[in-house]
């Protein structure tokens, strides 16, 4: 079954058994696959909206939910191919899946792919900040369900 979790497993499998240099090469391949920023987001990029704090590179992220389906629109500077590769992995993992499922994406992916080891602690912290930002964005974009308990008016 195609789920965010199954996609993550497939990606983790691609990284398994690679040596550190091969992991970097695969990450750079993922980076090349990140689609260019759509026209609709260019102006918003100029306003620096969607900026991720705490990572070391200019990264612009728009986690979105359209008709209940998640997608990640993003732009990462070309001088940051490993960050771009990680964002591409996240984008592939969540694209078109239900928002709640996408928002449950586990940050263990950074360790399980071995990226934490090849990129070092500071950069891994940056990747975790990116993932946290994507998850928060997706959760914020999910409309509250009608069955959710509502606080009583006071």
């Amino acid at each position: 079954m195609d789920t965010v979790a199954s996609r993550v497993e497939r990606i983790v499998g691609e990284f398994a058994d690679l040596d550190p240099r091969e992991k970097l090469e695969l990450l750079v391949e993922f980076a090349a696959g990140l689609p260019p920023l759509p026209e609709s987001h260019r102006a918003r990029r100029a306003e620096a909206e969607g900026r991720v704090h705490e990572c070391q590179t200019p990264v612009f992220l728009w986690p979105e939910v359209i008709d209940g389906r998640a997608r990640l629109v993003a732009e990462v500077a070309p001088e940051a191919p490993t960050v771009k590769g990680f964002v591409a992995i996240l984008s592939q993992a969540v694209e078109g899946r239900p928002a709640a499922e996408a928002a449950a994406l586990d940050e263990a992916v950074i360790d399980r792919t071995g990226l934490a080891e090849v990129l070092g602690m500071l950069r891994s912290r940056g990747l975790r900040a990116i993932l946290a930002r994507v998850k928060r964005g997706l959760l914020a974009a999910v409309p509250p369900t009608t069955s959710a308990p509502r606080p009583a008016a006071s």
């Binding site: 240099r21 970097l24 090469e25 990450l27 750079v28 980076a31 070391q56 590179t57 001088e79 940051a80 191919p81 490993t82 960050v83 771009k84 590769g85 090849v118 990129l119 070092g120 602690m121 500071l122 950069r123």
Partner: peptide, 27 residues
């Protein structure tokens, strides 16, 4: 480099990489 992917994408022929974070900073 700031980002290790740059060396990975292409380097001066024969050049080795030394990474400021993974190689030069104490873990």
């Amino acid at each position: 480099d700031e980002d290790r992917g740059l060396y990975t994408m292409g380097h001066v022929p024969g050049a080795v990489e030394i990474d400021w974070q993974v190689d030069l900073q104490a873990p």
